[in-house]
Structure formats: C-alpha cells, structure tokens
Design a protein around this nucleic acid. Structure first.
Length: 392
DNA sequence: AAACCACGCAACCGCGGACGT
DNA sequence: TACGTCCGCGGTTGCGTGGTT
C-alpha cells in the first residue's frame, strides 16, 4: 500500500509554514466547494501542498468555528478529568470542548497541564498523587480500564452519530443549493458548507442534570416529567459541571404512552430544514415528529425514532434549524421516550418538560425510576475522578 | 549585543480503520 | 477477498520567540 506520505514525497510538494496567500486560496476554495475530497483539493485550489497538509491547516487553524487563546479554568478541569478517563484520546476529549481542536488540546496538555500536575505532586499518567501511584496501581488500572472502555465506546458511537448527521446535513445543503440557484452567493455557501459543531456535545453530566431536575420538581402530581436525557441537557443548558462519565441509559422506559394531558403540540418541525432522511412517516427509523401526539386517543401522529442516538441527532437538527416550536417528541419503538420544552412558556418548570409520559396502564413508575437513577448516580460518583477536581 | 536555552505551537509523519472497486 | 485510496488520529519534529547569561 502506498501511503500518502510517500506520495507527497514523490510529488515534491511544499512543506513547512503556510503563507497568507496559501491560506487565502484554501479558504476561498472551501468557501466555494466545502471541505472534503482532500486528495484532489490542492490541485483544484492551486496549492502545491498535500491534501493531508490542507486538511490539517483547515481543521487546526483556518476553520471559522475555532476558539483560540487562553484555556479557561473550566476547560482545564474538563481536559484533566477527561484525560484521567480516556488517556491520550485527544479527539475524544476535543468533542467535549467545543471550538477547541484535538491538536491544540494535545499541545496544551503536553506543554502546560502535564507540568502543572507534576508540580502539584500528581502523576499526569495515573492522575493520582505520585506517592500513592505505585500502591494503588493495580486496583486503579483495573477500575480505570473498565471506565475507559465504557467511555471510549460511547464516544465512538456518539462520533458516528454526529458524522452521519453531518453527512446528511451536507447532502441536504447540496441538494437545496443546487436546486435553488445555479450561482449561489458566497455567504450562503459558507453558511451551508462550513457548519459549526453543535454548541455543546450531548453527553456531559446528563444524569446529574436529570437528578437536579427531579430534585427541583415540586411534586409528582403537578411536576412536568422528562424522560429523555438529551432533553434534560437542553433544559439545563446553563448548568456547568466538570466532566463525568455519565451518559444515556442503555434502556428506556417501556410501555409508555403519551398522555398529552397538556394538549401540547409535538414536533412542529419544518421538514425542509431537516436532513432528507428525517421524514414524517411513522415507520421510518429516522423519522422525526411531525404533527401532534401519537396517542391513539388523541388521534394524532408522531414519527418514530430508532434509538436515543437518533433522537440526539434529530434534536440537534432541530436545534440547528433555529425553528421555534413548542415541543419535540420522539418514540422508542412504539413508546414515547419523548422530550419537550415550551419556548413560549414563562414558567421555567414548563421549560423543563411539558410532556407527560406514563405507562400503558396509566400509572407512572416515576418514583421507582427516580430511585434507580439515584442508585446509578451514586455508583457514578464512585468512579475514579481527578484528585484535583473531584466530581461534585 | 550575541549566544544559548527553554518553551509553545504549527506542521509533519506513520499508522490503521473505513470504504469503494 | 484483495487491493487501493482516503481520512483521521496520536506521536513527534522543528521553527519562532522570549528570557537568561
């Protein structure tokens, strides 16, 4: 197999620092044509660089959605905690730090954080006090390995979901731009092609948000109920916690039906704003809600979603569309997993969820589920965490 | 002022996985 | 299945800059 590096050498391509002219050529090309097809990009853009070099320059430097400059204390904490969990998985860590590149985080770790931890008498490898590192090594490593496997698998799944969503989004954009005008404006192309990442990765501290949310609820009877971890994150977007390993549950409530006792409209989403695979057909695994409540008693209809990941993607699509509506509903198989929020409501409690989800018999195992999650939360709090920034 | 050194960071390199043929 | 290509990742390198001697 001929590696790209070997090809680059054969072609005698330019290496080293990029000039402003080269930057401009690259940016102009990507603004016009979008990113991707890196191998053919240099020739088309008039650059004597390898595709790899172009990609790197764009990803790590030229991309408009990059935050540069000093890392905040919050970012420091997140990096240290995630490094304790994931090790040198810089791209995975970068997923949790919007607008920071893996390269930047890696450099920052190697040049600053590593030294800072060492100065504090903490091993940057084990994240434990250097004196105790040897004693606890076997116990810690077993614990850590388990956690790392868990977290890595989750992050990979998450990344796949996100890639898929981006693919769909790009495809949709290409379709819409080609059909609307043969000479689209540069501005619109930039907006279409260079889509920033979602502002916040949908995985941090969901369980804690859930827990706090339920702790805030006044009573079972009049409490709005929220079962989707992702919706919880949306609803508690202002909550900031150091990173944890908390994630979506593997299972979702079953035998649930939408009671729709608030007469809310579910999923009023403009389909044209969503990736093409999100249709309104109830049998489509990737469908998103269109219409109103699915409950047969209500005589309404909701699309179905294959799994929580798809719900995440769907909600992300919804969020990025900027479309305003009362609520969004998703189904897990035939059961409403459901999340929702009411932007028009003045009540913060309603914003935390206006959808009521009960089981088929009409009773609600809310308290039982709460206790289950409390137990999980306790377990999660027992996971290894940074001695510098312990899990709250 | 010049030489040296340490540091930060952009860029490169090699590898492996994913995907298409 | 085998092969070629593309892409992304983690480790490493090397250059520019600022501080020190």
């Amino acid at each position: 197999m001929v590696k790209s590096g070997s090809r680059d050498k054969q072609a005698g391509l330019k290496k080293g620092p990029w000039t402003p002219e080269e930057d401009q050529k690259l940016m102009y090309y990507i603004q016009l044509h979008g990113q991707g097809s890196w191998s053919s990009l240099p020739a088309k853009a008039g650059l004597r660089r390898s595709g790899k070099s172009c990609r790197l320059r764009w990803i790590n430097y030229l991309r408009p959605d990059i935050k540069r400059g000093k890392f905040s204390l919050q970012e420091d904490q997140t990096i240290i905690q995630l490094h304790a969990l994931l090790g040198n998985k810089w791209s995975a860590i970068a997923h949790h730090l919007p607008k920071r590149t893996d390269n930047e985080i890696k450099n920052y770790w190697n040049t600053c954080l590593k030294k800072r931890l060492t100065r504090m008498g903490i091993s940057p490898n084990t994240h434990k006090p250097i004196n105790n590192a040897v004693n606890n090594q076997s116990k810690d490593s077993a614990n850590l390995n388990h956690t790392v496997q868990w977290e890595t698998a989750r992050l990979e799944a998450e990344a796949r979901q996100f890639k898929e969503y981006r693919k769909l989004q790009l495809h949709q954009n290409q379709l819409s731009s080609s059909s609307s005008s043969s000479q689209p404006s540069l501005t619109r192309l930039v907006l279409n092609k260079v889509t920033p990442r979602p502002s916040r990765p949908p995985c941090l501290d969901i369980l804690k948000a859930w827990y706090i949310n339920h702790s805030l609820l006044p009573s079972k009877q009049n409490a709005p109920k929220m079962r989707s971890m992702y919706a919880m994150m949306l609803a508690t977007d202002d909550l900031e916690f150091p990173a944890s390993t908390l994630s979506f549950p593997d299972t979702v409530p079953t035998n649930s039906k939408c009671s729709n006792n608030n007469n809310n409209t579910f999923g009023m989403i403009n389909q044209s704003l969503l990736p093409s695979s999100f249709t309104s057909t109830a049998t489509n695994e990737n469908a998103i809600a269109k219409g109103v409540c699915d409950d047969e008693a209500c005589g309404n209809k909701v699309g179905s979603l294959g799994n929580d990941g798809n719900i995440m993607v769907a909600v992300e699509a919804f969020r990025s569309s900027g479309y305003s509506c009362n609520s969004v509903a998703g189904l897990y198989h035939d059961d409403v997993l459901a999340y929702g929020f009411n932007e028009n409501s003045a009540s913060s409690q309603q914003n935390l969820g206006v959808i009521s989800v009960g089981n088929g018999s009409g009773s609600d195992n809310f308290e039982g589920e709460r206790q289950d999650w409390e137990a999980i939360l306790e377990l999660a709090n027992g996971l290894p965490s940074s001695p510098v920034f312990p899990v709250l």
